[in-house]
Amino acid sequence: MTEYKLVVVGAGGVGKSALTIQLIQNHFVDEYDPTIEDSYRKQVVIDGETCLLDILDTAGQEEYSAMRDQYMRTGEGFLCVFAINNTKSFEDIHHYREQIKRVKDSEDVPMVLVGNKCDLPSRTVDTKQAQDLARSYGIPFIETSAKTRQGVDDAFYTLVREIRKHKEKMSKDGKKKKKKSKTKCVIM
């Protein structure tokens, strides 16, 4: 069974824990209790493949930012979460993405942009803004509501699919490099 290491990042209060708990335990946590770091595991079937999701729910508070490099190193894919009623959390996505790329030393890291709290009427981040940002990053965008469960499975499952595509691409690139290195030079 394939294991996928997913990391949920975003500013404090955007609903990272609520999304994760909704996926794992099928219930909505409405009281806000700032996370330092929590880890969850769940076995699911995605596109006919049974897999184990190892999900790291991270601290959004700035005082825990020193811990970010460590979990970013171990993560295979990242859910970059903002709240649709919090423009600052949307603007912060850029910083999370840049930090992930720096730590992973790669421009090509599996990510999904997630606009959470889409059940709320007080939207300050337009869907088109988020779609445009995701398009500019070359990553999928999904709106979710941890409260109603809308888009929750889709967000995590899409990230797994992005990781699969990335692994497939990397193995193809690896095979191309191996083929090239088999060419021999004969000096007579």
Rank of each mutant, 00 (worst) to 15 (best):
F141I: 13
D33Q: 09
F78C: 03
D173S: 06
K180G: 13
A59Y: 05
E98H: 02
H27Y: 08
E168F: 11
I21Q: 15
R123M: 10
L159H: 00
T158Y: 11
M188A: 15
G60Q: 03
Q70Y: 04
V114D: 00
G13K: 07
S122H: 11
Y32F: 11
E76W: 15
C80W: 05
Y137L: 14
V44F: 06
K128S: 14
A134Y: 04
V81I: 07
M67F: 07
H27D: 08
Y4A: 06
I163K: 09
K180A: 11
I187W: 09
Y64K: 13
G151R: 03
T58N: 08
K42R: 07
T2Y: 04
V44W: 04
K172L: 14
G48I: 02
I24V: 10
P110E: 01
L56S: 14
T127C: 13
H166G: 05
P121Q: 12
D153A: 14
K178A: 14
M188Y: 07
I93T: 08
K177H: 14
D57P: 05
Q61P: 11
D126I: 07
T20A: 12
K172V: 10
K147L: 13
M72Y: 09
Q129P: 04
L6Y: 02
K180W: 05
Y71F: 11
C185H: 15
M67R: 09
R102Y: 02
G151N: 10
D126W: 06
G60N: 12
E63H: 06
D154L: 11
K180Y: 14
C118K: 03
I55H: 06
I21H: 15
F78L: 04
K180N: 14
T158K: 04
G77H: 00
S65L: 05
G13C: 08
Y71I: 14
L52P: 11
K117L: 15
Y64W: 07
K88Q: 11
H95N: 07
K167P: 02
V186R: 03
I139L: 02
F90R: 01
A66E: 12
R149G: 15
D132P: 01
F78H: 00
T2M: 03
R135T: 10
Q70E: 14
P140I: 09
S181E: 15
L19Q: 10
K178F: 06
L133E: 06
V112P: 00
L19C: 07
D69Y: 02
L53Q: 06
K184P: 15
C51M: 05
L53R: 01
S39E: 10
C80P: 00
E3K: 12
D33F: 07
D108A: 04
I46A: 07
V7G: 03
E3M: 04
R123I: 09
V9M: 08
Y96N: 08
D30R: 10
T20D: 11
I46R: 03
K104G: 04
V109L: 03
D33T: 08
V81P: 02
